[in-house]
Design a protein around this nucleic acid. Sequence first.
DNA 1: TTTATCTACGTAAACGTTTCCAGCACACAG
DNA 2: CTGTGTGCTGGAAACGTTTACGTAGATAAA
Lengths: 339, 339
Amino acid sequence: MNPVNLKLLAQKLNLSIATVSRALQDSHEVSMQTKERVKALAAELNYQPNAYASSLRRNVSKTIGVVIPEVNNHFFSLAINGIEEVARQQGYHVLIYLTHDDHDREADITQYLTGGRVDGLLLSVAASASQDFSHLQKLYDSKPAIVFFDRVYEELPTASVTTNDYESGYLATRHLIEAGCRHIAHLLVSGNLSIGRMRMQGYRAALESHGLTFDETLVVNGNDNDEANTQLITDLLRQRPELDGIFASVERLAISSYQACHALGRAIPTDIKVVGFSNLGVAALLNPALTTITQPAYEIGREAATILLRAIEKKLPILPSQSVVLNSTLFPRRSTARG
Amino acid sequence: MNPVNLKLLAQKLNLSIATVSRALQDSHEVSMQTKERVKALAAELNYQPNAYASSLRRNVSKTIGVVIPEVNNHFFSLAINGIEEVARQQGYHVLIYLTHDDHDREADITQYLTGGRVDGLLLSVAASASQDFSHLQKLYDSKPAIVFFDRVYEELPTASVTTNDYESGYLATRHLIEAGCRHIAHLLVSGNLSIGRMRMQGYRAALESHGLTFDETLVVNGNDNDEANTQLITDLLRQRPELDGIFASVERLAISSYQACHALGRAIPTDIKVVGFSNLGVAALLNPALTTITQPAYEIGREAATILLRAIEKKLPILPSQSVVLNSTLFPRRSTARG
DNA sequence: TTTATCTACGTAAACGTTTCCAGCACACAG
DNA sequence: CTGTGTGCTGGAAACGTTTACGTAGATAAA
C-alpha cells in the first residue's frame, strides 16, 4: 500500500536498513547526526512503520481485545471509555467484539483470539443459558493475558474487576423492604454467573433477615430481547397481583419493568416500587425518577485495563490476587419513595 | 507464544509447509487425502494461523477501524452494533478509537492509522472548534478505504452515510412552532461540520417560513462536558426569559436542557418545549416524555460498514456517488405538547 | 607497540505466512 | 518414442521489521 518503508528510507539516505530502524527507535548505537537525518526524512515522507511486520517480529501486537455482551448499555459503554482511555495512554489499540450474550458467538470469538492477534483480553462473560465454558478454558490455555470484569468466569485463575454484588443485592432489597414492600420480584439475566448468584444471595439474605420468605417463582430470567422481557414482566405482574416491589439486576430489565407497569397502569411508586442496577445518566429524569444501584463503570474499565496492561508490559502472569472489588452506590429516587 | 504453526504441522505430517498452507485454504492443488490429514491434525492441535504473518504477506489485515467521538451515546453505540454485525459476518475485526471530540486526538489517531493497520476506516468526525482538517487529508492520501457516517468531512471524495439533516432540522423547528413556540433556541455541537450546518439551515428556514426572525444569539454551541453544557443552558434561560422552545441538535444537549429546566423550575412543556435528536431508548419514559428526532443509528452503522467492506473485498475505490441518505423520524411526545 | 574498549554502522537471520516456480509421476495423443 | 497436459508436492522468495553478530576505525590502556 504505502511504499514508504525502511528500505526506501535506507536507500535515500545511503544507510543500511538496520541503522534506519535503530535510528527511529532512538538506539544509542546510532550517532546523533544520523538519527536526525533519518528522522527528518521519515517525517518528510510521512513514514509509518508497518504494524504487522513489527508485531510478527517482536511477537507483540500492542493490541488488546475487549469481549463484551453489548455496547448499547451504559455500563459497558462507560467501561469501554475507561478501557480506551488507558489503552491510548499506553499506545495500545483496542479491538471490540460483541457476544450479544450468545454462547456460540462468544466461543467463536474466543477461538479467533487464540491466534495471537491480541496481547491481552478484557472479558465480560456472556449471560447465556449454557453452562459450558470450555471455550474459555481453551482460550486460557493458549495463554494470552486475561482480566475479567463484571461478569466473571471464576474457574480461571486470573484477575477480575468486579463490584460488591452481594452487598448491592442486599442493599437494594432492604431498601425496598424498608420502603414497605413485602412481595419483591428479582429480575436477572446472569443466573449461572457468579455475578448473578451473588446478587441473588444478597436478595435472598435481605428477605430472610427481614422475616420475608424467599419465593422461587418471583425470580425471573430475562434475556437480551427487550420486547420479550417486557412481556415476561407483564405476565408476572398479572399473575401475581400482590407484587409490590421489583429488583432488576440489570438496566434493561428495569426499563422493561417501567414499560410493563405503564402498560398495565400500575403506578410507580404507589402500587409498585422499582430499583435497578443501572448506569443510565438520565435515571433521575425518568418518570418517576429511577432508584438505581450504580456501578463505577468507568473506573472498572480503567482498573481492568490497568491491571492487564501492567501485566503485559512486565510480562508477568496475572494472578487472582490482583483482583479488585469496587463499590456500587445506591441512589434512592422517586421510584422507591414511601406511600 | 503458541508454537503451533505451519512448520510444526508440516513436520508432524511429513509434508512441506507449502502443502500444509494450501491444504488449510482448500486449494484445489492438494489431494483430498492430504487435505483431510492436515485439517485433522490442525483441529487436534488447535492450530490458529498467525494473523500478523498473514497480514504482512497478503497486505490485507481483515480489520477495519472505527473512529468516533464517544461511545457513551446511544447513537454511536447503536451504530457500533450495526458495524460489528456486518464486520463479523464477513470475518472482519473492528478496532475502536474515541476522539472525545478533540481535534488533536483525532489527528493522532488518524496518523496512527496511515500505517496499514486497517484495510478501511469508518469515520465520524470530531466536532471540535478547529477548522483544520489537514489530518484527514493526510489520512486520505495514504489511501485506506474511508466511509464517513453521520459527521462528514465533505472535502474528501469518498462515500458517506448520513440522514436527512436539513429536513429534520426543519421538521423539529416547525413542530415547535406549531406547538406554539415563538422564541426557539438551537443548541448544537458541530457548527463547523456539514451536519451542523444542515440542521441549522433547516432550523432557520422553518423560522423564516413561519414569519419568525432568526436570532443568532439563540444559537448556542455546547461541547462534550455535560456540566458545562447545563450551565450554559441555565445562563441562556435566565438571560432570555422569553424563550419558549429548545431544539437540541444532539442527545446530550437535550438532557442538559431538561436538567437546566428542572433546576430553574421551568415546566416542560408548559413554560418551555423541548425537542432533541436522540436515540435514547427511554425517551418515552422521561419526565416528561421527550419528543425526539431519531436517526436510524443501527442501519447507518450497517450501511456504512457494508459499503466499506464491499469496496475492500472488490478492491474498488469508494465513490461519493455511493453515498446513502437515510431518514430520521420525529416522535412527538409530551415535551412538546400544546398548552 | 600491542591489546582492549568503544562507537557507529552493516550483514543476515528470523518471525509465520503465501505464492511463484519449479519438479516429478503419470496419462494420453500424436 | 516424443511431446503435452494434469495432479500433486516441495523449494525458496517475499512481505517489513527487529536484532544477534560482525567489523572497521578510533581511542585508551598496557
